[in-house]
Structure formats: C-alpha cells, structure tokens
C-alpha cells in the first residue's frame, strides 16, 4: 500500500505512428496508473504491446522464448477475434491503455509466467477482455438521471431507473450478442424526462434481467466504481433462478456471498474455482440489480461456516451435481 512500482512496456510490430502514440501516452499517463509505466526495449520490458495485424511481428513473438516471457498485450483493429487476456483496440487511446496496465497490476501478473494464445489457436475469449476505459456496466451505473437510453448500432434499450423498468425491442439474446461485439459504439444518454417517441410501442418490463446481463457481459473485468477488490461484499438476496441457473459459477458465488461476514474478491478467487473476471462480472451484475451490500466484519467471523454434521467432501457434492446434471 502506497508503494508505487516502476514497470516497463515495450512494443513489437507497431507502425511508427502507433509506436509514437504509445510512447506519448505513456509519457502523459504512465504515472497515472497504479504502478508507474515507462517505455523500454522489449528485452527489458514487463509487458509488450504486439500488433496482431502484423503477421511478421506475431511470428517473431511466437519464435522467441525470451519475448514470450513478457506479458503480451494484443493491439488489433479486429478486437472481437482476439482471445488474449489483454488487448487494445486500434487506434490507440489513453483510457483503454490505462485500464489494461491497471488490470495487469491488479491481476498480479508476472511476465515469466504469462501465456499468449494467438488467434490461430482458437481459444475461447475470456469474459473480461479489456478494451476501453469505462465498461458498459460502469457507464450505465454512472448515469444519475431517471431515464437512460442505451443505443447500440442495431437497437436501443431504455431504462427507467426510478421505477426499475426497461423498454427495448431487443431480446436478451440479442442484447447479449451486441454487448459481446464491444461496447465502444454504444451511445448512452440520460434525461430526467422520457425520451419522446423513441420507446413508443415498447413494453416497459422489469429491468433486472437486462441489468444483470449488462453486468455479466459488459463488465470487462473491472469492478464498478465504489466496489473495491478488498471490499467485503454480501448478497442481500439471491438473484432470480432465471438469472443464476445457467451457471454453476453463479450458484457458487451466491453461496460465497451469502456469508454473514461478506467476502472479498480475493477471497472468492482463493476459495473457489471461479475466475476473477467471472466474479467481477457477477458482483457488478448483482450491484446493478441492487442485490449486494458492503459489510464490515472482523477476521474471526469471516471464516466459512463449516457444516459440522455432514462431513461431506467436495467430491461427493460434485457427484450430486453431476447426477442432477447442473
């Protein structure tokens, strides 16, 4: 706490213009990240920005064990096809860069253990790919006005925050697809009065399923403002079965966050197989629908309440789940 570490960032395969922009951004904002970041040659760098649109550079990276020991940050004009933990969209901008650098620090990544999966390996994308400063979930959470309009390029969604209602022509599946395609193009506007005519003919329904989806799919691996990784968080109520039944992770997170003392993000990751990004998405979603609260607790009460009578093993519980096909 309070100690700022100097970190180094390099680039491989960037156009001279992109490299200049990267250096400038680091000069301007490198000290505004959690650790201080400065530009360096790749052989001295903690992380490397790699231009994924430059096939020679990608091959160079693949062929160099030394280079692959650095944390890769993929830079590409086609972000949706990427599968790396960290990536940046072109053109390079300050906010996404700062977010990625902060995330690397937050995740405690060590360059020697970093893994890079090239697009040709076809790995599934992580839930929390980072691509811009404020996640969609954060942008919606930040809205203060009663009415919020979220305009995707293929549809709109209106929120009445006061009455916890939502109107949209989009199905949840469509919305999920649009969020997955990146939220960069999403326009969010807010107003104290209803947006005239735009939601005409749309039915106002409960907003929770939509807000939940935005939290789950639109968090980009970052907690909402006001939720810190060391906050002790507790569920106020379990989300509806409709929202949680699809994933065992959600069930696990619900149980963990039902503890009297609450639980921190780090404790969640340490005591379950749920990934950090998944946990963040869940916490954000639960926050958006108003189902979590921060609690204060002493160390003694933060321990899990171990079932005393059953003495059942995790293996047994897994077998029961398997039998239930959940």
């Amino acid at each position: 706490m309070g100690i700022c570490v100097l970190k180094t960032l390099a680039s491989v395969g960037l156009s001279s213009k992109d490299e200049t922009v990267l250096k400038s951004l680091l000069d301007l904002f490198g000290t505004k990240t959690r650790d201080h970041w400065v530009y360096a040659n790749w052989d001295h760098a903690d992380a490397i920005v790699l231009d994924m649109d430059n096939s020679e550079a990608v091959a160079q990276w693949h062929n160099s064990d030394e280079m692959r020991r650095r944390i890769p940050i993929a830079l590409s004009g086609e972000v949706s096809s990427l599968s790396e933990s960290y990536h940046l969209p072109k053109p390079l901008r300050a906010a996404p860069l700062i977010s990625v650098l902060n995330l690397i620090v937050e995740n405690g990544h060590h360059s020697a253990t970093a893994q890079f999966r090239g697009p040709e390996q076809g790995s599934a994308p992580d839930d929390a790919d980072v691509d811009q400063a404020d996640s969609l979930a954060q942008r919606i959470k930040s809205c203060d006005a009663r009415f919020v309009r979220v305009a995707f390029h293929r549809g709109k969604l209106f929120l009445d925050r006061q009455n916890r209602l939502c109107a949209t022509s989009l199905s949840l599946e469509q919305l999920s697809g649009l969020i997955a395609e990146l939220s960069e193009d999403v326009e969010i506007s807010e107003s104290e009065s209803v947006f005239p005519d735009e939601e005409a003919g749309m039915e106002w329904v409960a907003d929770k399923p939509f807000l939940w989806l935005i939290g789950i799919s639109g968090s980009e691996g970052r907690l909402l403002a006001g939720l810190a990784p060391d906050s002790r968080l507790r569920l106020l109520r379990w989300p509806s079965p409709v929202l949680i039944r699809r994933s065992q992770d959600f069930m696990t997170l619900c149980a963990l966050m039902s503890r009297k003392s609450g639980i921190t993000l780090d404790e969640i990751v340490a005591s379950s197989e749920v990934s950090r990004d998944r946990a963040i998405a869940f916490i954000n979603a639960a926050s958006l629908i108003g189902s979590i609260t921060a609690v204060t607790a002493n160390a003694e009460s933060s321990q899990s309440r171990a079932p005393s009578s059953s003495g059942v093993s995790k293996g047994l519980l897994a077998k029961i789940r398997s039998r239930l096909k959940v």
């Binding site: 379990w238 509806s240 039944r245 069930m251 149980a255 379950s272 995790k314 519980l317 959940v326």
Partner: peptide, 24 residues
Amino acid sequence: EVDVRKREDVSLMINALISTIEFA
C-alpha cells in the same frame, strides 16, 4: 420461486443447498 412439479426446479433447489453447504 419454484414449481416443484418440474424436475429442474427441484434440482435447482438441491444444487443451491449443496452450494450453500460447500461455500456459505
């Protein structure tokens, strides 16, 4: 909120229970 005539709803309750036992 469950419909106990549906097997999946009963499964959901059992899963919630064993998750609570395991993690809460």
